[in-house]
Design a protein around this nucleic acid. Structure first.
Lengths: 175, 175
DNA sequence: CACTTCTGATTGCAAGTAACAACCGGTGGT
DNA sequence: ACCACCGGTTGTTACTTGCAATCAGAAGTG
């Protein structure tokens, strides 16, 4: 069980396949098919319960995968679990500050996807609006998410989230 | 083979597990363990050849995975293949404009990771510098990448890339 | 009380993907 | 002739994903 490799000393091949690079650690945590999609649905769709995420999601995540992702995100400190007064078995998942600070990441991902990938127009609208809104709009959105998920206040009808949702519904032709 | 599901008409469960959502499409393309890490090494490490990416990478990607990712990225239009005059078998991978426009995504990912994950300080410095530099610095970096990868000019010694590399080496204590 | 629905999951299985190590044919310098 | 280097490929093993069926507890309805 000796280690005959690693002759170089400058650029180190890290033994256990990990590295302290910020991009690498973030990709290690969120770089899979579903983690960011789940967070997207919590943020933009305001889906906070298991069934809601399971059935209202556009892409159709499997229930075991969703359960595993939620557990991982809770473990990573991006979501917190809360009892729901309306049903003893119901669990509410809320965003943490760490998750809310992922908004700029999602905005950039959405902006890039809307620019370079074959997105459907009605879904791309939210990404375009947020991207055009710049850091100020992202800041407003993050403050709104803080009010909703950290302070427990309801979504305000004149907020960014409502504006995005209305733009989407208008584009999707919902009468 | 009838389809007894899909009673809802508002929020559609897309049949083939895909959706035109920009975030979803981007995650579908780049949401894996290695794609963004490879692009990071091409951008920040200026590694343009297979062996370079294989051995100089911090995380130790396997050669078959690297080959598969390079092929996928070329196929997706994020990298292009070029003959290298110095060796008939040598292939140079260059960034495309689409890949260069991923810089803001990587900056945000790095900034978030440096803030919320246990990064090693010397590797976090580049992310912090780029994050603090704001959109202007990212723009300058993208212009530099365009000059190097699209126009084929060498890296300028007073550029963003050189500055980041120097900051890293200083922090890593390379004498 | 029985019946149904809703809650957040879990289980078993098939298929796909990642990791690891060994190896390949062609290239070019000595 | 030799050998290091080039971008990969192959084979095997281990793990992850996707799908469908199922679960037990909780609540609503008759």
């Amino acid at each position: 069980m000796d280690a005959p490799r690693a002759e170089r000393t400058d650029l180190l091949p890290v033994p256990d396949g990990k590295s302290g690079c910020p991009i690498n650690l973030t990709v290690e945590l969120l770089g899979d098919r579903w983690s960011l999609v789940v967070l997207r649905d919590v943020m933009f769709g305001d889906h906070r319960h298991f069934r809601e995420l399971l059935t209202h999601s556009l892409e159709g995540i499997a229930s075991n995968i969703l359960a595993a992702r939620l557990a991982k995100l809770v473990d990573a400190g991006l979501l917190t679990r809360h009892d729901d007064p309306s049903h003893r078995q119901k669990i509410e998942y809320r965003l943490t500050e760490a998750a809310i600070q992922l908004v700029p990441v999602l905005v950039q991902l959405g902006t890039w996807g809307a620019r370079w990938l074959p997105t459907s127009p009605e879904l791309a609208i939210r990404a375009q609006l947020l991207g055009q809104g710049g850091p100020e709009m992202a800041e407003r959105f993050m403050d709104e998410l803080r009010a909703m998920h950290l302070a427990g206040r309801p979504a305000r009808p004149d907020g960014v989230l409502a504006e995005l949702t209305r733009a989407y519904q208008r584009a999707a032709g919902i009468a």
